[in-house]
């Protein structure tokens, strides 16, 4: 089961991204309609469509026996598209919801999107498959703390990417712990 974390600046630019594979098996039930997809065209545009509709990742899963997905089998571009598109919902929910942790704000293809919006309008977006509300909440609050520590650096601006190795290592550790 994989998780994708993106830290997005208020101008929708990713400052940090992380792909985490947890050992827990994926429990999402597959829709019967996702099976037996036709290979209907070979043009490049059809490939785009296939990828965007989420079909390729499903095919990938089925060939590996439906178990744990390893490696970057999923189309990274599509994952990013989904994360980006989910901002629409996040922005709307933030307008009426006071909480910082927005659990499962959006679902797209097989992905569930949880988000965490800091008071500075930084958005942490996590794409996940299973349901793990409490773990994700803990994970987000740890990432938030780490993020705040990073911003304490006077040389860090709101638009610069986070390249700190320490930050990365700690986020990964936190992901291992909670996800």
């Amino acid at each position: 089961m994989s998780h994708h974390l993106f830290l997005l600046s208020p101008s929708d630019t990713p400052l940090y991204s992380l792909t985490h594979f947890s050992a827990k098996p994926s429990q999402a039930a597959q829709s019967p309609l996702s099976a037996n997809l036709p290979s209907w065209s070979t043009s490049a545009f059809a490939g785009t469509l296939t990828a965007l509709s989420g079909a390729s990742s499903v095919v990938q899963a089925s060939t590996q026996g439906g178990g744990v997905r390893m490696g970057g089998g999923q189309d990274r571009h599509v994952i990013q598209m989904i994360a980006n598109a989910s901002l629409d919902v996040i922005e709307e929910v933030v307008r009426r919801d006071n909480g910082m942790y927005l659990k499962s704000v959006d679902k797209f293809n097989e992905w569930t999107v949880s988000a965490f919006v800091t008071p500075g309008n930084m958005k942490f977006v996590l794409l996940h498959e299973g349901k793990n509300d409490e773990g994700i909440r803990l994970f987000f609050s740890e990432v938030w703390e780490l993020y705040v520590k990073t911003t304490l650096n006077p040389f860090h601006t709101a638009h610069s990417g986070i390249v700190s190795g320490v930050f990365d290592a700690r986020v990964r550790a936190s992901a291992r712990k909670h996800l």
Binding site: L37, P38, S53, A55, V58, V89, F108
Partner: peptide, 17 residues
């Protein structure tokens, strides 16, 4: 978001069918 939640169910691999 309610509408979107309903609507997002439409999207999936089955579109290829």
């Amino acid at each position: 978001s309610q509408i979107a939640a309903v609507l997002s169910q439409v999207h999936g691999p089955w579109l290829l069918h």
